[in-house]
Design a protein around this nucleic acid. Structure first.
Lengths: 110, 110
DNA sequence: GCCAGTACTTGCCCAGAAGGAAAGTAGCGA
DNA sequence: TCGCTACTTTCCTTCTGGGCAAGTACTGGC
């Protein structure tokens, strides 16, 4: 059982923060995300790799003037995954609304 | 920054499953939860401890006939925490809807 | 052409969390 | 008093994430 629709990648708060941030922008700069999420270069780089593997995040590299720069974008599938994840969460909470309907057992006496 | 309203306890899928399960019932039996979540006795026991510490879950011990039994209930604050957690999640996704409003930077050229 | 600098990326290591197995504990029945 | 049930706690292993430091790619300067 459990909660099969929850996305393991989005359960991690750090990655969720990243995705949340990217969700609100288009082609955010690596450094901007890093600073706002409060991660080191390496930590962000790794999480971006994790998110880029399934295609949730697109990475584009280029130059601003003569300085290298990396941009990140939440792909359509990334947006979709985020929405699906939260939808699954919502389902769970909806269960919470119709409490008491599912399971009946011997109630504790005291 | 990040996502301050997300509840660390509810970010873990196992605990979320437990809470979800308890949200749909009242005074569920330990064994019932254990079997549905698919955990060992020890693992569930530990997570219940984690959830009981902040008062999310209430534990009641008693007997069914002559057999010891433990019941678990999601407290009001547990329900509240779950709803708040998902509300925070929803906020994040809503940001995703109004994409592009927050951050503008030099766009990648290619 | 070579060294230095920027902007990540990768490797290495450590800390924290979770799960299982097994030993421990509490209360009841024989 | 011993055994049994139903958890609890302890011990150990595994996994994951983060930091630091070294590495890489590319550009600029001398």
């Amino acid at each position: 059982m459990a909660t099969p629709d929850l996305d393991p990648l989005l359960l991690d708060p750090t990655r969720l923060s990243i995705v949340a941030l990217l969700a609100s922008t288009e082609w955010a700069e690596f450094r901007w995300v890093r600073d706002l999420v409060g991660l080191s270069d390496s930590a962000l780089s790794k999480q971006i790799t994790n998110l880029a593997n399934p295609g949730y995040v697109e990475v584009k590299k280029g130059y601003v003037g003569k300085r290298p720069r990396t941009w990140l974008n939440l792909s359509d599938s990334g947006h979709q995954a985020l929405r699906a994840h939260v939808a699954a969460l919502n389902q769970i909470v909806e269960q919470s609304q119709r409490a008491g309907s599912t399971h009946r057992a011997e109630e504790p006496s005291a």
